[in-house]
Design a protein around this nucleic acid. Structure first.
Length: 454
DNA sequence: CGCGTTTGACCGGCGC
DNA sequence: GCGCCGGTCAAACGCG
């Protein structure tokens, strides 16, 4: 959505723009605001452009006004100069105050926009599901509903035909996962096909400080390859989920080239089986992030803006990149606050979905794995020595994200898009939790600590 | 002996 | 068309 239209749509007092551009000593978000209030929005600024001149001694000034005031000052007497400087400084001070107020208003507008965006997304996805219902029906018998969202459900939905090896080798597998024909059955709606195609490619990258070779995210992984990636002296390891026979989920683990204490884990795909609670958090986060990417694939969507919109409280740790090859959500857990505080807080009161769009299953303890999060250091930059601690870190971080009401809205949208009207997820959820309670203790990742060679 | 890792080879996509 | 590079395969190997 165009920002100008957004402001108009939200009824923002557009006359603020000109003032905003006058000065922004704040800095970090300056580019956004300048762009926001650029002169390109003439139709929104033209009304106000005369006002600063009419009240040149008032609060509202812009760059031109400053220039006009400063240049004549050079010709003034030496005695008047300090006076004007003092006035200017006073004005600057007032402008700074106003700038802060405007920032607050901008934050409010952004919040409103987020809500609207999420609502729109939800409506769109609901509409899609009315067009193409029940693509998950084929999956449901295989893996009970409570598992994570089937964003990458195509392999799962085809698991009846794609028996056994999930290989994608051209020499051994004719049913390539990436083939559009495999994305959905003939009953599937075209728009959803496209959505799933994009979501299948979506990845979620988690950056976390860890001395361990991999982060324990609650799933079982089997290493199937290792490569030296260009531009990084550290090898990249490839893991495949082995909790189910044909689970399509893969992950890549690589240390950051700049800071080798940072472990970058990239998840791709969606599990087609029940997950341990410990894995649920990450998987759900992954799925929701993929859903966000879906929404970001809408035309003219600004992904960075989208990232801030979807994860407003996590903007410092979550970024969305649509740059090739795959759209990727990066969750940066290497930064402590502000999310560290959220991550370290007791995980029990996880605010989940707002009632209207919340599928029943997510009002259950879908993220019960987060309850394992006991490490007070979760989300901080302190390296955690054990895999369990890392699991806590990841889970707690995921809790921090999912606890964000805006994120849960996005999550609701994701669930709505995937599950649609399908409702009896709760039973499976409880089954799922029963199934995996024990596995959550063994942290279920690959036991081989030598898998990550340097 | 079974399971998981290692590692060189292979394949496909992409840029030039 | 060619080469680079990411991703995957599969035989070899190690470990319990």
């Amino acid at each position: 959505m165009d920002k100008g239209h957004l402001l108009a749509f939200l009824g923002l007092p557009l006359h603020l723009h000109g003032r905003m551009s006058a000065d922004d000593p704040g800095g970090s978000r300056r580019s956004v605001e300048v762009d926001f209030f650029s002169d390109d929005n003439k139709q929104t600024c033209v009304v106000e452009r005369d006002e600063p001149r009419a009240a040149s001694s008032g609060l509202a000034i812009n760059k031109e006004d400053l220039t006009i005031n400063l240049l004549p000052a050079a010709t003034h007497d030496e005695e008047t100069k300090p006076k004007e400087e003092v006035e200017l400084q006073a004005e600057l001070g007032r402008m700074n105050e106003e700038n802060h107020r405007l920032r607050g208003m901008l934050a409010q507008v952004t919040t409103s926009y987020q809500a609207l965006q999420m609502h729109l997304l939800t409506l769109m996805q609901q509409a899609q599901h009315q067009q193409a219902p029940a693509p998950l029906a084929a999956v449901a018998p295989i893996a009970p509903p409570p598992r994570q969202l089937q964003l990458d459900q195509q392999p799962a939905s085809n698991s009846s035909t794609e028996v056994g090896s999930p290989r994608r080798s051209s020499s051994t597998a004719n049913n390539k996962e990436d083939s559009p024909e495999a994305t959905g059955g003939p009953a599937e709606g075209r728009p959803q096909q496209l959505d799933q195609a994009s979501m299948r490619k979506a990845r979620v990258s988690v950056r976390a400080r860890s001395e361990a070779p991999i982060i324990a995210d609650g799933c079982q992984w089997r290493k199937y390859g290792q490569k030296m990636a260009k531009g990084n002296p550290c090898p990249r390891a490839y893991y495949r989920c082995t909790m189910a026979n044909a689970c399509p989920v893969r992950k890549q683990v690589q240390r950051c080239a700049d800071d080798r204490s940072i472990l970058i884990t990239t998840y791709e795909g969606t599990h087609n089986h029940p997950l341990p609670p410990a894995a649920m958090a990450m998987a759900s986060t992954t799925s929701a992030a993929a859903s966000m990417l879906l929404s970001g694939s809408m035309p003219s969507a600004d992904n960075s803006f989208l990232a801030r919109a979807v994860l407003p409280c996590s903007s410092s740790m979550a970024t969305i990149s649509a740059s090739a090859p795959f759209p990727t959500v990066t969750l940066d857990l290497t930064h402590g606050p502000p999310t560290a505080a959220a991550a370290a807080r007791p995980p029990a009161p996880l605010p989940l979905l707002p009632p209207p769009q919340a599928p029943p299953l997510y009002n259950q303890s879908k993220f019960s794995g987060l309850h394992m999060s006991s490490s007070p250091d979760a989300g901080t930059t302190t390296p955690l020595p054990t895999g369990i601690g890392l699991a806590d870190t990841v889970s707690a971080a995921a809790a921090a994200i999912t606890a964000d009401p805006n994120f849960t809205v996005a999550l609701a949208a994701a669930i709505t898009s995937i599950i649609g009207g399908g409702g009896q997820q709760q039973h499976g959820s409880s089954n799922n939790n029963n199934n995996v309670t024990s596995s959550s203790n063994n942290t279920a990742t690959s036991n081989n600590t030598n898998s990550e060679t340097q």
